[in-house]
Simulated assay, not measured.
Amino acid sequence: MDVSSVDEFTLIDLLNGGQQTIAFQRAGGVETGIGDDAAVVRASSDSRWILTCDTMTEDIHFKRVTMRDADIGYKAMASAVSDIAAMGGTPRYALVALSMPKSTPVEQVRAMYDGLYECANRYRVVVAGGDTTSCIGGVTLTVTVIGETEPDKALLRSAARLGDVVFITGFTGDSAAGLEWLLGKNKPSEEWDDDPELKQYPGLIRAHCRPEPQIQAGELLRRSGFCHALNDVSDGIASEAWEIAAASNIGIDLIEDRIPVSGELLDYASKQGKDPLDYMLYGGEDYQLIGTAPAEHAVELQMKFKEAGLPLYLIGYVHGEHSGVRLVRSDGGAVPLAKRGYNHFTG
């Protein structure tokens, strides 16, 4: 058996399951360990650390035709910061590990770090250290981010409750469409400015190259006291909804007509002869937040978001009629959604 024969979450369990007891981890201060967007660690009586890391590997997460050097650094930081947002936390510190061939041009690495620091500074993350090493293959950039929250305030995937509504903080599918568009053009990123065709979908390209972690939304959800479960959309709405459903042992219905879609995605999908819903459900790397909240507080939560100048869309319901995730179509029929999104080992 090789790693391509198991999905990513099964592999994580195979590598980590049974290695350390929950009691051992709790004694070490770990309150939420492997299985959520990030770990939660007891820092003191009035604070909890949130720990996460993300890796960007050349030809897996990016190619020279899908990202500029500065985009690589920006997105590496953004994807890790987004895990903190998904826990309702505030990012504080980062450690950065870079592996690269000895032949890598210095200006290329400098551009990656310029992008990385642009994102870190935007979200007030202190880059406190890291490591650099040479490698035989392409560039690999790993970012560890440490965030903070109050005791018992971290927002977990496992907290959805019967009767909750399901919400999302913005458009999804744009990043996947942007990636598809760039792969189809297959043009080196240093030539993008000279290609007028690439200016057709600036929002889709921006969504893929410069995603924005929803820190403000996550903090608002935590402070509101109304949010139950929360997850970030790194692998598509269907996959993230499944993670919440499985962790919370409930069922989720997503309402097709309520899932927001951007104008650029509608236009792009139409010209490609595809359903925009496929990008939204099974794309990923949009880093919006999907979660659940009590139905009786849904309107009040939307008002809080409106006052903060942020969108919040109600897109479904939590119930106990079935397990897993269904899509309620425009005609009222409900169809099961496959538990899939981007998976590193099965494709």
Rank of each mutant, 00 (worst) to 15 (best):
M1H: 06
T10C: 02
L14W: 00
L14M: 13
L14S: 10
L15F: 08
N16Y: 10
G18N: 10
Q19S: 04
Q20H: 15
G28M: 13
V30L: 12
T32N: 04
G33T: 07
I34Y: 08
G35M: 05
D36R: 02
A43E: 11
A43F: 13
S44G: 11
S45V: 01
D46V: 13
S47W: 13
W49H: 01
I50V: 15
I50P: 05
L51H: 03
C53R: 14
D54K: 14
D54N: 15
T57G: 03
T57D: 01
E58Q: 15
E58S: 12
K63N: 14
K63G: 09
R64K: 12
R64H: 14
V65I: 12
V65D: 13
D69M: 10
G73T: 04
M77Y: 05
M77Q: 04
A80S: 14
A86D: 03
M87A: 12
M87V: 11
T90G: 00
Y93C: 10
V96F: 03
S99T: 15
S99L: 06
P101T: 03
K102R: 15
S103G: 00
Q108C: 08
R110V: 13
R110W: 00
A111V: 03
Y113R: 10
G115Q: 12
L116Y: 04
C119F: 10
V127Y: 04
V127G: 14
A128C: 06
G129H: 00
T132G: 01
G138K: 11
G138P: 08
T140R: 10
T140S: 11
T142Q: 12
E148S: 12
K153C: 11
L155G: 06
A160D: 07
R161Q: 15
G170L: 03
T172S: 15
G173T: 01
A177E: 07
A177I: 04
E180S: 15
L182A: 05
G184D: 13
K185M: 12
S189K: 02
S189M: 04
D193F: 05
D193Y: 11
D195M: 05
D195V: 09
E197V: 10
Q200G: 04
Y201F: 13
P202Q: 05
L204H: 03
A207V: 01
A207P: 06
H208S: 06
C209M: 07
R210C: 02
P213N: 08
L220K: 08
L221F: 05
R223I: 15
V233E: 02
V233Y: 05
V233L: 15
S234G: 08
S234I: 04
G236R: 09
I237S: 06
A238L: 01
S239I: 00
E240D: 02
A241F: 00
A241G: 06
W242N: 09
W242F: 08
A246S: 08
A246L: 07
A247D: 04
I250S: 11
I255T: 11
V261M: 13
G263D: 14
G263F: 01
D267E: 11
K271G: 02
K274M: 01
K274G: 00
K274W: 05
D278E: 13
Y282S: 09
L289T: 07
P294G: 07
L301M: 14
K304E: 14
F305L: 05
P311I: 07
Y313V: 01
G316S: 07
V318M: 02
V318C: 07
E321L: 11
V325F: 02
R326Q: 08
L327C: 01
R329P: 04
R329E: 10
G333K: 15
L337C: 04
A338G: 11
K339P: 00
R340A: 12
N343M: 09
